[in-house]
Nucleic acid binder design. Structure first.
Length: 596
RNA sequence: GCCGGGGUAGCUCAGAGGCAGAGCAACUGAUUCGUAAUCAGUAGGUCGCGGGUUCGACUCCCGCCCCCGGCUCCA
């Protein structure tokens, strides 16, 4: 269903217009009806392209003024009347030269441009009522089948995705086979808005952004607690997987980047700093410095594989318009590592990494999807190296029985890669892990090991990040959990609430016992009504509320409430402390305290 | 970076050439409370930044910064 960028470019050259699935066909037809409505309401507008995409469709129009929300409402009304008229979609073929003349005469310059790029002798046109469009189809039988749709937004988009081309006005819409599916999709859009991590980050006091450093989060105590827990998770896992952690400088002399190739291939994304007539850069990647660690000692074939983890803070000068909360930042920390191994160890190492992906995502209930990206147009290295590296990754995926999507030309300049997307609670996909083979850095930095025959050989370098970046994963998890983090990640794990001042001392003793057991507890003994303080704890998604009154002080219990709203009644303090400690240590995904 | 929309109190937002507003939060006081908002009072502003027009600019004009929706790019 997903239409990759590659497919879209193919479509432009007329290979096909959309998948023949009923849903994609419906969406594609809906985009034609939208174009028809736009042409009726704005006759001067020129049409460009209108494909089906994931969850819907769009159509690009050449129009001086952007569409307003009122325009969208009018267009949607017009679409409904076109649908009601139940016009037939009629296909007809035409010699390409004739089609060029036809569209040129109508002033449809974009259609002419598409046609001129085709080499087919004949092309097909689809007509419904007063609208005719160059299109390979297929389409639904008639506009009457288009019923469950909604226009969502409009924005600028470049013709053929190239910023040197004219800016078009794109209208996005969604279309489904049933009212239920449409409603569910619209609900998901609403829910996604509510879960927006930028909003929740502020409301839950996790992280904020400030114009003094665009694209760099300012971590508040709550959000930083989450980062620390994730780092602890990563370190525990790495310690158990044969990795060694290192740390390398953030500010690095340009000379290193010249040697690594980043100066030629990545400079536009690097922040530069000058000092004493030397040029330095904030590192955009950790890999070149990891080679210095490799070279620090003479390495033997017996030493390999060497696995260096380096959770370095990176800076990449992303274009200002691309920054988005924690999802796209200029400063971030990868859970990065570089593995140096022999050729014969590649597959075992990649396999182990794919194992890490599955193991690490499990506690979060995140489903991984694998993508293999191959050699891009601008790259370093020989054909032979690329062939070996690409096959190494593919073999490991196949050996593990993992399905994957192929992204030709999407690799880095130094090697092919496996990227891993996850699907969150709202079925949205985000990129997380990346595993990249690199023959270039070892060569450029003259890395070698002494093989069993006494000869020096170059090691293979594998870059990999499993969570991707701590920033991005915190953003993803914030939305995935809608702010209700599992207890081990929750900034505040328990809030102790005395019913009134009279029981503040008892509540304090409960709070102190929790703290002694390293539970992140807070005491809310403010002079507010119980209901008010429960409400505040609920709104901050604190997993457990421990209410203390006369009965509890008497019996050595607390009245336990889960943020789910469940009231577990009186539970002995000993048991609450024990259950909480166990739930946290086990990184449980659900609330268990008082239930066992 | 490009197209469009924005930036007013800590937060959410109203206001539009002539005294800067509300709700929530904060603070003070009263209340001492049994599971999602007790009452009363007080305080809070470089209206993003800089320049211009005007008797007078939060409001109009110009430039810049940042944010939002997309394009492009990406961990």
């Amino acid at each position: 269903m997903t239409v990759s960028e590659e497919d879209r470019h193919l479509r432009l050259t007329g290979e096909f217009d959309c998948d023949a699935t009923p849903l994609a066909t419906l969406r594609h037809s809906t985009s034609h009806v939208m174009a028809q409505a736009v042409k009726r309401l704005f006759p001067e507008v020129k049409v460009a392209i209108g494909p089906a995409i994931e969850d819907g469709f769009y159509y690009d129009f050449f129009k001086a003024e952007p569409f307003t929300p009122e325009d969208l409402a009018r267009i949607e009304d017009e679409m409904r009347s076109i649908a009601k008229a139940d016009l037939r979609f009629e296909r007809r073929e035409m010699p390409r030269a004739e089609a060029i003349a036809f569209f040129r005469q109508r002033g449809e310059r974009f259609k002419v441009e598409i046609l001129e790029g085709l080499d087919a002798p004949t092309v097909s046109l689809y007509t419904q009522g007063d609208f005719i469009d160059l299109c390979r189809g297929p389409h639904v039988g008639s506009t009457g089948q288009i019923r469950f749709f909604k226009l969502l937004s409009s924005s600028g988009a470049y013709w053929r995705g190239d910023e040197k081309n004219p800016m078009l006005q794109r209208i996005y819409g969604t279309a489904w086979l049933t009212q239920e599916e449409l409603d569910r999709h619209l609900w998901r859009l609403e829910e996604a808005k509510k879960r927006d991590h930028r909003k929740l980050g502020r409301e839950l006091d996790l992280y904020i952004f400030n114009e003094v450093s665009p694209g760099a989060p300012i971590w508040l105590p709550g959000g930083w607690t989450i980062v620390r827990e994730l780092e602890r998770f990563v370190r525990e896992k790495l310690d158990a997987s044969g990795y060694q952690e290192i740390s390398t400088p953030i500010l690095v002399n340009k000379k290193l980047w010249e040697q690594s190739g980043h100066w030629d291939y990545y400079q536009e994304n690097m922040f530069l700093v000058e000092s004493e007539e030397q040029i330095f850069s904030l590192k955009p990647m950790n890999c070149p410095e990891s080679t210095i660690v490799y070279r620090h000692a003479l390495r033997s074939y017996r030493d390999l594989p060497l696995r260096f983890s380096d959770m370095g803070r990176l800076h990449r000068n992303e274009r200002s318009g691309t920054l988005t909360g924690l999802f796209r930042v200029r400063q971030f920390t990868q859970d990065d590592a570089h593995v140096y191994c022999r050729l014969d160890q590649i597959q075992a190492e990649i396999t182990a990494m794919l194992g890490l992906v599955r193991d690490w995502y499990k506690p979060f209930g995140l489903e991984p999807f694998f993508k293999l990206s191959t050699r891009p147009p601008k790259s370093l290295g020989t054909d032979e190296q690329w062939r070996v590296a690409e096959r190494g990754l593919e073999d490991a995926l196949r050996a593990n029985g993992l399905a994957f999507e192929l992204n030709p030309g999407d690799g880095t300049f130094y090697g092919p890669k496996i990227d891993v997307d996850i699907q969150d609670a709202l079925a949205r996909r985000w990129q997380m892990a990346t595993i990249q083979i690199d023959f270039q850095q070892p060569e450029r930095f003259g890395l070698e090991y002494v093989d069993s025959d006494g000869q020096p050989k170059p090691p293979v370098m594998i870059h990999r990040a499993i969570f991707g970046s701590f920033e991005r994963i915190v953003g993803i998890l914030t939305e995935h959990y809608a702010g209700a983090f599992p207890t081990w990640l929750a900034p505040v794990q328990a809030r102790v609430i005395p019913i009134s001042e009279k029981f503040a001392d008892y509540a304090r003793s409960v709070h102190e016992r929790l703290r002694a057991a390293r539970v992140r507890s807070e005491l809310d003994d403010r002079n507010e009504k119980l209901g008010y303080r429960i409400r505040e704890a609920q709104l901050s998604r604190v997993p457990y509320m421990l209410v203390c009154g006369a009965r509890e002080a008497e019996a050595g219990t607390v009245s336990l409430r889960h943020r789910s709203g469940d009231d577990l009644g009186a539970v002995p303090v000993d048991r609450v402390v024990g259950d909480l400690a166990r739930e946290i240590a086990a990184r449980e995904s659900s609330l268990t305290v008082g239930r066992s």
